[in-house]
């Protein structure tokens, strides 16, 4: 697919493609570096709660994040660190939320991957992930009602969430309302430990698209160029009035469900298949092969990522956790309607 594009494009287009690829790779690298840091902090007992990595899904994730622009809406899944960073989430938000820092966007009230800034278009997931799709619909619906044109929303889910009622209701709702929703399914073969043959019986998840009256796309999630190409096209089509787009990416989760999970159930044949390739390594090889970057350059970028991550972690480690005595313990915005707490 890449070579066919190459044969048609002009010099300027080729330069722009190179630039996009490099930008995407660098976000992937930063995400991987930060994920690796979270994993080691978890193993060292420094982080409370779960740690969920995006290992093997960075190419798809970053492509979704980069296809969006300011003013768009993004509801990431738990493996979307690369996409979050590309969409504009600061590294410090991620680290503060893992540490439960009072200075983070969730102020210790929610943690790890459950973070976002709703007013800036980054929606903080609830654990019932399929439920986020219709929330994206709602923002898009509101934009249209307010006469704001050109917004696109990406909702990111895994193969597991396609089995939920929320998925069905929301994709159907988006289709009925012709909303500019791009629903990205990272089919990473396992929902926690459950393989796809116990999750669905259709040939491919993308086959559901025509049933809902939406456009379907398939992408190789291990190939950054393919991810950039397909996600950019799907987002452009939604932005251009083409209605909801459903993208199914084929890839393999290269980690446990969370860092508590050794993923011993993953079929070794899948790991050694093309699907089991590490998208970050594939991208690095591509950069070298295209002569878009040399080994020294890659090493330099790695160093930059490590420095950024280490600096941020060091900063957040010095920050105080939330103080239960200063917490207002009020779940309502209307403070005067708060129930009294018996002492």
């Amino acid at each position: 697919m890449v070579s066919s594009v190459l044969s048609r494009e002009t010099g300027a287009e080729a330069a722009s493609r190179r630039e996009s690829y490099i930008e995407a790779y660098r976000w992937m690298l930063l995400a991987r570096t930060l994920d690796d840091k979270f994993a080691s902090l978890y193993r060292a007992g420094k982080l409370q709660g779960g740690v969920f990595l995006g290992r093997g899904q960075e190419a798809l994730s970053v492509a979704a994040g980069l296809a969006l622009r300011k003013g768009d809406v993004f509801a990431p899944l738990i493996r979307d660190l690369a996409g979050r960073l590309a969409f504009g989430e600061p590294v410090v938000d991620a680290v503060r939320t893992y540490y439960g820092s009072a200075l983070g966007p969730m102020r210790g009230r929610d943690g790890n991957v459950h973070r976002g800034r709703p007013r800036e278009g980054l929606l903080p997931m609830i654990s019932h992930l399929g439920a986020m799709i219709s929330v994206v619909n709602g923002v898009l619906f509101a934009r249209r009602m307010k006469g704001v044109a050109g917004t696109v929303g990406v909702a990111s889910i895994g193969d597991g969430a396609t089995s939920t009622g929320s998925f069905h209701e929301a994709i159907n709702q988006a289709a009925v309302e012709k909303l500019p929703l791009v629903l990205v399914i990272a089919n990473n073969q396992y929902a926690y430990s459950t393989f796809t043959d116990r999750q669905f019986a259709c040939q491919a998840l993308v086959d559901k698209a025509p049933g809902y009256g939406v456009t379907g796309w398939t992408v190789n999630g291990t190939d950054l160029a393919d991810c950039l190409d397909v996600l950019t096209s799907a987002v452009a089509r939604a932005r251009g009035g083409g209605g909801p787009q459903l993208v199914e990416a084929h890839l393999l989760r290269l980690c446990g469900h969370g860092e508590h999970d050794d993923a011993g159930y993953v079929d070794p044949r899948l790991k050694s298949s093309e699907m089991g390739r590490d998208c970050l390594k594939v991208a690095e090889e591509f950069l070298l092969k295209q002569d878009w970057a040399g080994r020294d350059q890659l090493q330099h970028w790695r160093g930059e990522s490590i420095e950024k991550v280490d600096q941020t972690v060091a900063q957040v480690q010095r920050e105080a956790g939330p103080d239960p005595y200063r917490e207002d313990w009020c779940a309502l915005a209307s403070k005067h309607l708060s129930e009294p707490h018996p002492s």
């Binding site: 709703p118 929606l123 994206v136 619906f141 929320s166």
Partner: peptide, 14 residues
């Protein structure tokens, strides 16, 4: 489910 989800998104957007 989607009715409420849509309302939440719309409320977030003002």
């Amino acid at each position: 489910d989607a009715i409420v989800g849509l309302a939440v998104g719309a409320a977030i957007d003002g």
